[in-house]
Computed example of a mutant assay.
Amino acid sequence: MSDEEKGDANNEYLAQIYQRKECILWGSIYATNLIDLENRLAGICDPGCTPFHEHEMSFSLKTTQTPDVTLRLRRKFHTETTSSNQWRFRYVGRPEPDPNCPVVVRKVIDSVAHSQNMMEFVKTLGLRLDYEYMAKGKVWTCGAIKIVVSSLKRTKQPGKYEVENLEKMSDSYLIELSVTINDSVDYHPIAKQLKAFSSQLSPLVELQKVEYWVK
Results as ranks from 00 to 15, higher is better:
Ser2Lys: 14
Asp3Val: 15
Asp8Ser: 10
Ala9Glu: 15
Gln16Met: 13
Ile24Trp: 00
Leu25Asp: 07
Ser28Met: 15
Ala31Met: 13
Thr32Gly: 01
Asp36Ser: 04
Leu37Ser: 05
Cys45Tyr: 06
Pro47Trp: 00
Ser60Trp: 06
Thr63Val: 11
Thr63Tyr: 00
Thr66Trp: 00
Pro67Phe: 00
Asp68His: 10
Phe77Thr: 12
Glu80Gly: 05
Glu80Trp: 05
Trp87Cys: 12
Trp87Thr: 09
Trp87Phe: 08
Arg88Asp: 10
Phe89Thr: 15
Arg94Pro: 13
Pro95Ala: 02
Asp98Met: 07
Val103His: 00
Val104Ser: 00
Ile109Pro: 08
Ile109Asp: 03
Ala113Tyr: 07
Gln116Trp: 02
Gln116Asp: 14
Met119Ile: 13
Phe121Leu: 14
Thr124Glu: 14
Leu127Thr: 10
Met134Glu: 06
Lys138Met: 12
Thr141Tyr: 03
Thr141Met: 09
Val148Glu: 09
Ser151Ala: 14
Ser151Lys: 14
Leu152Asn: 03
Thr155Leu: 08
Lys156Met: 14
Gly159Pro: 09
Gly159Gln: 06
Lys160Met: 08
Val163Cys: 10
Leu166Gly: 02
Ile175Lys: 02
Glu176Gly: 03
Ile181Pro: 08
Ile181Asp: 03
Val185Cys: 09
Asp186Pro: 08
His188Val: 12
Ile190Tyr: 01
Gln193Val: 12
Leu194Phe: 01
Ser199Asn: 11
Leu204Pro: 04
Gln208Ser: 07
Glu211Asn: 04
Val214Arg: 14
